[in-house]
Design a protein around this nucleic acid. Sequence first.
RNA 1: GGCCCCGUAGCUCAGGGGAUAGAGCAACCGCCUCCUAAGCGGUAGGUCAUAGGUUCGAAUCCUAUCGGGGCCGCCA
Length: 574
Amino acid sequence: MNIFSDIRTLVVETLDAMVADGELPSGLNYGPVTVEPPRDAAHGDMATNAAMVLAKPASKNPREIATVLTERLKSDPRIAVADVAGPGFINLILDGAVWHDVVAEAIDAGPGFGHSGMGAHVKVNVEFVSANPTGPLHVGHTRGAVFGDALSNLLEAAGYDVTREYYINDGGAQVDVLARSAYERYREAHGLDPEIAEGLYPGDYLVAVGEALKEKYGDQFLDKGEQYWLEEVREFATEAMMDLIRGDLAALGVTMDVYFSEKSLYGSGRIEAALKALEDKGLIYEGKLEPPKGKMPEDWEPREQTLFRSTEHGDDVDRPVKKSDGGWTYFAPDIAYHYDKVSRDFDELIDIFGADHGGYVKRIKATVSALSDGSVPLDVKLTQLVRLYKNGEPFKMSKRAGTFVTLRDVVDEVGADVVRFHLLTRKNDAPLDFDFARVTEQSKDNPVFYVQYAHARVRSVIRKTEELGLPISDHPKLEDAQEYTVARKIAEWPRLIEIAARNHEPHRVAFYLYELASEFHALWNKGNDHPELRFVHEDDPDATAAKIALPRAVGVVISAGLGILGVTPVEEMR
RNA sequence: GGCCCCGUAGCUCAGGGGAUAGAGCAACCGCCUCCUAAGCGGUAGGUCAUAGGUUCGAAUCCUAUCGGGGCCGCCA
């Protein structure tokens, strides 16, 4: 139940009735009609702009429409008060029974409360992380991983069918570099000095791979040219790196549905097929590119190569798909990969990239637009940098100096729950500060703690009620204004899921939970001055039954919201 | 040079066509014989970068300018 959409339905039906009675012309577009909580609570529980947005198309005065609409709305039992205000807003105050019902329903529905049918099982593919399989995940990947996973959870709650997918870049030169780096560690495992030349991956995470290679291949690759070992070592090392990455993701609580191998596209005719599809649309040609402006490469010379006419689909310049030597560019398998996604009948695609891939967005969008004839929307979300701090001091990262911070480091230091929540307290496209000291601080400037604390308080009073053998009721008896405020906040949850899902913005869930926790803490404290507002009344079973329902509903929503963020709600604070 | 993101309270940030623009921190004043004060209430703090435009209505949409960041080769 989403009370806001219920009341909007009521408004629309009432408008239809007015049309039937000749009070409004027919054929009006109700699209812009909204029913929302007003910014100022003094304006009531919700407000509709119906009269204002319909005034012009109906050629009527907005206040005139509002007056009639208001009178009609009053006859619905859910509407306690309806007033025309300002330029033509209709402010509504709902009957108290509505809020009682919301609380009861939250408890009854449990974790599924607020889930929406909005998505209508539309198939969405969410591609995220997709880090090169050349080493462990670092902090930057962590943000993408958390964002992608939370967004996927959110879309599922809103009724979409979601596939979480990881694109393994195992087809390019970087996995050859990986193989050569692993080979040196293999030599090292045989007691030889490894020669980690410039450009190879120096990380000691490859030491174990070298040992494993020795285990599997013995000394058969020693002192051999790379033509004898490159392919097998590459295969082996890539698989080892993917195991590492899967482990990193698991530590964060992220599970992918599909791992898609770039290499599988080569030699299978799938790149050719994708380019054929573009060619059939007249979007492939042989030509020369202009040199990039403002950053002229020293050795630039125009060369004839195969180009994708991506400018036809909104890109700034056409993009090469073949190098002048005839080999595929890096972009070619990407085209094939997105062609594959489109062919797998996804209705919508979402790609989550690091901000350094910003320059790639237009060509990928052009690709999907061209391959699907514009029928499959692609949203590309860029996650901005995470700036690391320790006690307010910036934390310098350098691969070379070995102070490079991995996902594992962060999770080991502060725990997956804290990492996940904190990384979701900012919009994806805003940079974010992550201070190792502050994120574990137990105070209200730490939203993770604050929300968890509210949940712990809920669990605490429920435990207490059970211990005392008092009744646990599903039906609240709201009396105090603050109780209604909390109930109204609970009623916003289903609406919030829809808005956050529609905008692909899981951070809204984190902010909402903070607000809900805040209202709940306020109510809790009001119990200090007004003992009758406390939830547990040791010698009064009826009063306890009436009061315990509201915190139970709060617990349901916090727990559901944290579930979307991928954070475990705690039973108690320690 | 081009493209993308950002500019909202002293600081960190929400809000992204709707009414008097919000929260946390920092500052100041209060609240524990009481289910966890790890909390709550209050005061103060604003030309929503600037200038035009669209609209009944703009912090929000459009254009330009200024400022900050990022990206821009057949690399990956």
